[in-house]
């Protein structure tokens, strides 16, 4: 077991961009990004279901890529960009994915939802028109015990249509 003393260990500090805002945070250096988000920054939207990389519930976007915040040292996040479910909506509006998830039953207990939302966003950022198989594949790292996934796929597909509509009306 560890020989270093927890109570005497100094805190570390990093500065990074959280949901578009620069934040400074000090934390116990053994902590993962997940722990710092939830415990030191009060961002509890990101959940945890195993803390070992085996369920996907803690996914966030790190520099635009979906990663598991339970396996990222907070120390490694200095200067980086983190997006959590709290930063998904813009200008007081829900992201189309959030709207679709809410309307189509894609969130039952809602516990795996934040991670699935950000993972789906990363997919759509990279590929705005994924088919059902690509959605299945992209979300294959997020366990859901409530829905059987089908309404999640449908919600992602509905959001794709909505985003495409918004983009068309903008251009």
């Amino acid at each position: 077991m560890a020989t270093l003393s927890i109570e005497s260990q100094k805190t570390s500090q990093i500065r990074f961009t959280l949901n578009g805002e620069e934040v400074d945070v000090s934390f116990a250096p053994y902590k993962t990004l997940l722990e710092v988000l939830r415990e030191d920054l009060g961002h509890t939207g990101t959940k945890h279901g195993c803390e070992l990389g085996e369920c996907g519930a803690c996914a966030v976007l790190l520099d635009g890529k979906a990663v598991l915040s339970c396996l990222v040292l907070a120390l490694e996040c200095d200067g980086r960009r983190v997006l959590t479910v709290e930063g998904l909506g813009e200008e007081g509006k829900l992201h189309p994915l959030q709207d679709a998830f809410a309307d189509l039953g894609a969130a039952q207990c809602g516990y795996c939802t934040p991670a699935i939302l950000v993972t789906a966003k990363a997919l759509l950022d990279q590929n705005p028109h994924p088919n059902r198989d690509q959605i299945r594949e992209a979300l294959s790292g997020n366990l859901c015990r409530c829905t059987g996934y089908l309404q999640i796929f449908e919600a992602v597909e509905a959001a794709i249509v909505k985003i495409a509509g918004q983009n068309n009306s903008e251009t």
Binding site: R38, E39, G42, T44, G45, T46, K47, H48, T84, V85, E86, L88, G89, L94, Q98, D99, F101, A102, D103, G105, A107, C109, G110, Y111, T113, P114, L117
Partner: peptide, 20 residues
């Protein structure tokens, strides 16, 4: 839309471990 849907999709549903 279920009444608690917005809370769930914005990560605001307060689960027990979210209480500090």
């Amino acid at each position: 839309r279920r009444v608690d849907a917005r809370a769930k999709v914005t990560g605001q549903t307060r689960f027990a471990d979210d209480i500090f």
